[in-house]
Design a protein around this nucleic acid. Sequence first.
DNA 1: ATTTTATCTAAACGTTCGTTTAGTTATTTT
DNA 2: AAAATAACTAAACGAACGTTTAGATAAAAT
Lengths: 196, 196
Amino acid sequence: MSSVFTERKMARKKEYNEHEVVEKAMHLFWRNGYETTSMQMLEKEMGINKFSIYSSFGNKHGLFLESLKNYKKKVNLIFEKFKNADNGVEDIKQFFYDSISSNFKKDGEKGCLLTNTYNEFSDNEDELIREHMNTFMDNLKLSFIEKLQKDGTRDEATVIKQANYLLLAKHGLAAAARVNTPKEIEDYIEMTFVNI
Amino acid sequence: MSSVFTERKMARKKEYNEHEVVEKAMHLFWRNGYETTSMQMLEKEMGINKFSIYSSFGNKHGLFLESLKNYKKKVNLIFEKFKNADNGVEDIKQFFYDSISSNFKKDGEKGCLLTNTYNEFSDNEDELIREHMNTFMDNLKLSFIEKLQKDGTRDEATVIKQANYLLLAKHGLAAAARVNTPKEIEDYIEMTFVNI
DNA sequence: ATTTTATCTAAACGTTCGTTTAGTTATTTT
DNA sequence: AAAATAACTAAACGAACGTTTAGATAAAAT
């Protein structure tokens, strides 16, 4: 990744790896959300000084954006698997399972970082964050539509309606994953796909 | 309501009505959440001085609890209608519609205050808040179970599974109502009940 | 070997937060 | 009318926030 700023000739090596500290920051943001995570907590979790954070990422907001990008990379692995699969609606269900399995509390993480962020910033005018969220949601919806069109014989209206339904279900699922057990989530996914 | 503290003989009348200012505080908390709402904003919205807030409600947390109670009163009107109805599963669907209709953006409110609070405090150790949330969720689930048992011929396992499903759907719905349109929400509710 | 400069630590910055206090005003009690 | 006191205004409190700065350290360039 290297610094987000223009590279200069270096006089002293960085004692930390930027990718590693972003990974740690991401997990902290994931556990606590943006506002609740303080620079002091980040300093401790990332194991580097505030100055180092600022020189590498500009400010807290810049660090959060890098954390989001880092999270998106992981999500994209699942998303690519989903798009490359070829079992129609069954792929969507599998995608739900794959998404949720990564949403579970390895070390206190709650739900999906992207969905949490979408909710935390829903009434916020932060353009950069909204851009991240909207492209993510749009991509998801388009993929659902594509899968639904390829599979079975749905008319256009049904495809749109079911895609909307699945998008909301996915959103609700990620929110619910914050407070429900894997078993409850599993039942929910199965129920969701009975009528798709 | 009167003050949350013991009543004393008064030397000067309060120039505000406590119920009215709680109503205003509730709407502000609803729009912004607990942490994002500052005492300064509350002061302005409620139209009274900080001192008055503290003498009436103790602190920000006390004011929030009063706001939650106030919100619950409104929710309970819908909830009572639901419990007193006698059309089985159809009542649950109507309850979803009734709940959601109150979640829409009259003046920028986002979703359901109780669900928002449940999410905002999900990793918080605040006993009083958790108590509010848990009793609310438990009551909801019990009511769903009761309705499902009375209606049709479901076995015990199916009742439990469907009640869990509906609870998650309701939770997800309230979260989704923050960022989706009424039309999308309506489609979602209809889809939800196809296989119940 | 000396100079230069990026990175480090640690302290301090100005704001804003929730909360409290000091002093004034208005109403009740004597 | 005077005394007592609850409710008011406005200023101040300490703590925590995100951010910046001053000075020490270490590696590259000369």
